[in-house]
Simulated assay, not measured.
Amino acid sequence: MEAAEQTDPTEPPLPPLVDHHCHGVVRSELGSAAFEAFLTESDAPAALGTTFFDSQLGFAVRRWCPPLLGLEPHCPPAYYLARRRELGAREVARRLLSATGISEFLVDTGLPGNLTTPQELALAAGGTAHEIVRLEQLAERIADTSLTADDFLTGVADGIREAARTAAGFKSVAAYRYGLDFEPDPPGPGAVHTAAERWLARRGQGGTAAARVTDPVLLRHLLWSAAYTGLPLQLHTGFGDPDLRLDRCDPLALTDFVRAVRPTGCTLILLHGYPYHRGAAYLAAVFPHVYADVRLALSHTGARAGAVLAEMLELAPFGKVLFSTDAYGLPELYVVGARLFREALTGLLTHWVAEGAWSRRDARRVAALLGADNARRVYGLGTPTPRAG
């Protein structure tokens, strides 16, 4: 089943991408079930008699990843996983990540597990990395050592201020913890103190659920604290695992918060969006401080990624859409995210140029904006770093 060629030597060098939202990859070897768990947002195994490989994402992994490991595209999953075990996790990560064409990674370090650090991820890919600090994890870490509400609130203020010195931005998963239909204005000091006391007391009673910050007052406090740092703030919207209520994750529910936070100068970046990505595109179109991406949808819609991207580009200004992979756990998800984005965007732009709707020059310029230049501008990353080789 080994492929004669891993890449087409006549293909021109791909322009580097900036992955503005991603996570580390698993360091350890993975069995079949553990590998498949990363191909879905479900928190349960595949239904009896089915496999998560039989999905748009599963097919995309089988299309793009086997040639990078010396196998034919679309080889059976068992062949692919056997080859993966033969090479080892580190070598697989090196081969796959270095083939993505991603030069910079903005890594959300808020997920648990034996995951690579931003620096390890960048080293394997031959690129550079920056940290995105997850607000809820920061608050929970501070709460672990706080004896009183005053200790906690002081620690949060200091922690956010310290993180802002080195991080590229912040991220909130308020969509998971409560929903996006929260009160838009900053909560008063008294309400924040009372909420902190209540949460710390509940944490003291133990339990995983009690340890998580879910109080809407505290979530709003974290959002507004981050907004005043001047760094970009990523917000999860739309599609995700069953831990959220999708009907409460429509980005349009953020409209009043978007209006309220505008005077701070904070840039808001709406992640994912699907199936509400057209709403995210609308917010990016009408508010100067709002940006959007559709990454998670592209990988999970696979062969339909072009249709989803086209819907985002119906309304969103081209300087307001950013590329990301949202890859987590598997280096394969970086490959799929980058390839599907390139394939979808190339197909759309080629069609629009061919029918005379766009000029070739504008198509190339917009491709550069979406792939890297918008992220460089929004996060202040500066000029690109040439890739080795």
Score class of each variant (00 low, 15 high):
Met312Gln: 06
Leu345Ser: 09
Gly382Thr: 03
Thr154Val: 15
Ala368Asp: 11
Ala143Phe: 07
Asp243Thr: 13
Leu231Lys: 15
Ser98Thr: 15
Arg90Cys: 00
Val213Phe: 05
Ala344Arg: 01
Met312Arg: 02
Arg342Ala: 14
Val378Cys: 02
Gly356Ile: 13
Ala174Gln: 07
Asp181Gln: 09
Leu115Asp: 04
Leu223Arg: 03
Pro16Gly: 13
Thr214Ser: 15
Ala253Asn: 03
Tyr328Thr: 02
Leu87Pro: 05
Tyr274Ile: 00
Ser172Arg: 01
Pro67Arg: 04
Arg165His: 02
Arg94Pro: 03
Leu14Lys: 12
Ala195Trp: 06
Leu315Ser: 06
Thr383Lys: 09
Ala303Arg: 12
His193Asp: 12
Val18Leu: 11
Glu140Trp: 08
Ala367Gln: 12
Ala143Ile: 10
His277Pro: 00
Gly204Ser: 14
Leu381Tyr: 13
Leu97Ile: 09
Glu41Met: 12
Ser42Val: 10
Glu41Thr: 13
Val133Asp: 01
Ala303Gly: 02
Glu343Gly: 01
Asp215Ser: 04
His289Leu: 08
Thr383Phe: 00
Ala357Arg: 13
Ala253Pro: 00
Ala167Cys: 15
Gly337Asn: 15
Asp215Thr: 02
Asp108Gly: 05
Gly206Leu: 08
Arg62Thr: 08
Gly207Thr: 11
Ala47Arg: 11
Ala3Tyr: 07
Ala280His: 14
Gly188Ile: 09
Leu348Arg: 05
Arg90Pro: 00
Leu115Val: 11
Glu104Phe: 00
Ala125Tyr: 01
